[in-house]
Design a protein around this nucleic acid. Structure first.
Length: 594
RNA sequence: GCCGCCUUAGCUCAACGGUAGAGCAACUGAUUUGUAAUCAGUAGGUUGUCGGUUCAAAUCCGACAGGCGGCUCCA
């Protein structure tokens, strides 16, 4: 979102797609309507976004959703008037005069922000004039299908010290049909919302008495988390990781030594006082793992040392930012720290990348990668000398190039201690989440004076890699819930099989099958209720149970089950042993729903 | 944290100045059923909390809490 308010270069503007032009023009049409209805409104900016457009206003009128109809009706008039979008280029002085004559103080500030060498232009449609670099479509009549969606507060230039403006969000498409499809997709997305599904499927709960941003994983959510942990554990065991555990609080000195304290102060909670010392709820695990490295003298023969932990960390989030499982105040990282020699660094990075891609592939989660580098203009944001950074950034970039991973560059996106390779995962709602991350760090080993004895008998400094695959298990679960719309692959499904006896006469048979399934470590329940079979099927479908086994007199007589698959309906009768064999294979292979 | 909106039974919602109602879920009973809702009954609410206006407040006003949509930041 932040990028959208950053100044676009004129080049970028020229490349604006037809759809973006349309939406930007629609924002002007909306502003035109707002100015007609509330003429004393002050204008800020109105760019297109990925989903539509918005326009920010400073208005004495408080916008309410009931205004939408009125504004949309006025917009329809502007469209019907077929006003031409006309560009007027003028000098800075002329522009300033014009803006003052229009009494648009925010625009005056916006004008001052335009670089000296850049052309200054206004766009006019009908009576509406707006300082704007464009580009626009030809005329307002081409704005055909639009809808206003929401009202939001926003700070002028996104800075909390500035006054707050009112933002109206809307969307526009070339045709009514596309608009309808988009609005339907929004409705569908709402049904996938992990907060809604989390409640319906009894996965997690957040209560005011425990506190905001501190989710409780209910038994069914607990199953998913445990399966995810087991999955990662298998991957790590195969790669020679050691499993460690560290406490939830640590001496403030630890975080002062690591350098986290000054950089992370705003995200940490007030210290806890114990005896004469101050302790912090840990905001990250790495300093603890560093202390583990440093618990004994290390030889190059010990390296790489790979320490992994599901470590719960606590970070302050503003109350207005909390959101289900995606933004919380305590979360668990599947954290790992690799200590290695500089020679081993590239191979270790490669192995981390393979680990991440292997895991993401199991879920078929779409992702993009970003090489997140430091911002040279902001040197004080980073710890450690420039030469360390250059080495770290070079190593990361080399591996990315060597593996030919398509990636974008994120200047200024680095952690304070080193550059990162971030994996941005796109969820079913089209939002992008940074989950997996691989970070190269020469800085913390230096701060903690870490050493190992090399084959030359001399002391050397190890390099560190910080890496997390899920990132935050809570956030990863949220993404999975939405990705699968609650219909998890069998290996993750809290309830894998539900037995549905046709009548009471088959309950004993169902219980016997359930016993055998449990013995095979399959999560199973028997529906004893007095419902008709159709009612039982419905309930199981609503809870998104992957397999329903209907058992009646016939099945009980010949040791079969009638298999109903969540996605595919009635599959007919199968010998129970065959079903169990097939199911076990499906679970072991962590297959996706077919 | 800030701006706006919202908060009625476990869930989804109705009542919109005259002291609260439905469906589903729960519980009880009957039914024993063949692939997305069997029937009947019972119970369930100081209408988020506190305060104000009024003869009378779920309804109007205010404060607080929680939720939702955004803003800044991030896993």
């Amino acid at each position: 979102m932040a990028e959208q308010i950053k100044r676009k270069t004129l080049d970028q503007r020229a490349q604006m797609s037809d759809l973006e032009r349309l939406r930007h023009s629609c924002a002007h049409v909306m502003a035109t309507a707002v100015m007609r209805l509330w003429p004393d409104t002050k204008l800020d900016v109105g760019p297109p976004t990925e989903e539509g457009f918005y326009y920010d206003f400073d208005a004495t009128h408080r916008f309410v959703p009931e205004d939408f109809e009125k504004i949309e009706a006025e917009m329809a008039k502007v469209v019907a008037e077929k006003q031409l979008f006309q560009k007027h280029v003028m000098s800075r002085d002329e522009a300033l005069k014009k803006i003052r004559a229009m009494n648009q103080p925010l625009k005056e500030i916006r004008l001052a922000d335009i670089p000296q060498d850049e052309e200054i232009s206004f766009y006019q449609n009908g009576d509406f004039v707006d300082l704007c670099a464009g580009p626009h479509i030809d005329d307002t009549a081409k704005v055909r299908a639009f809808k206003l969606l929401s009202i939001a507060g926003t700070y002028f230039k996104g800075d909390a010290r500035n006054p707050q403006l009112q933002r109206l969000y809307g969307t526009a498409f070339p045709s009514e049909k596309e608009l309808r499809i988009h609005l339907t997709a929004l409705e569908e997305a709402k049904k996938r919302d992990h907060r809604k599904l989390g409640k319906e499927l009894k996965l997690f709960s957040i209560t005011p008495l425990v506190g905001g941003g501190l989710p409780l994983l209910l038994p069914k959510g607990g199953v998913i988390r445990r399966e995810l942990e087991r999955f990662i554990d298998e991957k790590l065991d195969a790669r020679g990781y050691d499993r460690v555990f560290s406490p939830h609080i640590g001496d403030i000195q630890l975080y002062k030594t690591s350098g986290h304290y000054p950089y992370y102060k705003d995200s940490m909670y007030e210290p806890v006082h114990i005896d004469k010392d101050e302790y912090l709820l840990k905001p990250m695990n790495c300093p603890m793992h560093i202390q583990m490295y440093d618990s004994e003298p290390r030889s190059y023969r010990d390296l790489p040392l790979r320490l992994a932990e599901f470590g719960t960390v606590y970070r302050y989030e503003q109350s207005g930012e909390l959101n289900g499982l995606t933004r919380v105040r305590g979360f668990t990282q599947d954290d790992g720290h690799i200590f290695c020699t500089p020679d081993q660094l590239r191979d270790e990075i490669k192995d981390c990348i393979r680990l991440v891609t292997e895991v993401l592939d199991v879920f078929k989660l779409p992702y993009q990668t970003r090489v997140s580098l430091s911002d040279p203009k902001n040197a004080d944001k980073y710890a450690g000398g420039r030469e360390l950074w250059d080495r770290a950034e070079a190593a990361l970039q080399e591996v990315v190039d060597e593996l030919d991973i398509p990636s974008t560059l994120g200047v200024g996106e680095a952690a304070f201690y080193g550059p990162k390779l971030d994996f941005m995962i796109k969820d079913a709602l089209g939002r992008s989440w940074q989950l997996c991350t691989i970070q190269v760090d020469y800085s913390l080993p230096e701060r903690f004076n870490l050493e190992y004895v090399g084959s030359d008998g001399q002391k050397h400094r190890p390099v560190m890699i910080h890496r997390a695959v899920f990132g935050s298990i809570e956030r990863f679960m949220a993404v999975l819930i939405e990705h699968f719309a609650g219909a998890f692959p069998v290996w993750l499904a809290p309830e894998q099989v539900r037995l549905l006896p046709i009548s009471n006469d088959q309950v004993a048979y169902a219980e016997e099958l359930a016993r055998q399934l449990r013995a095979a470590k399959i999560r199973v329940t028997v529906d004893h209720k007095a419902d008709k079979i159709s009612g039982k099927v419905r309930n199981a479908q609503l809870q998104k149970v992957p397999y329903m086994l209907v058992v009646g007199a016939k099945e009980a007589a010949d040791q079969t089950v009638s298999v109903r698959a969540r996605q595919h309906g009635d599959q007919g009768a199968t010998p129970f042993a065959v079903f169990l064999e097939r199911l076990s294979r499906e679970i072991a292979s962590r297959a996706l729903p077919s």
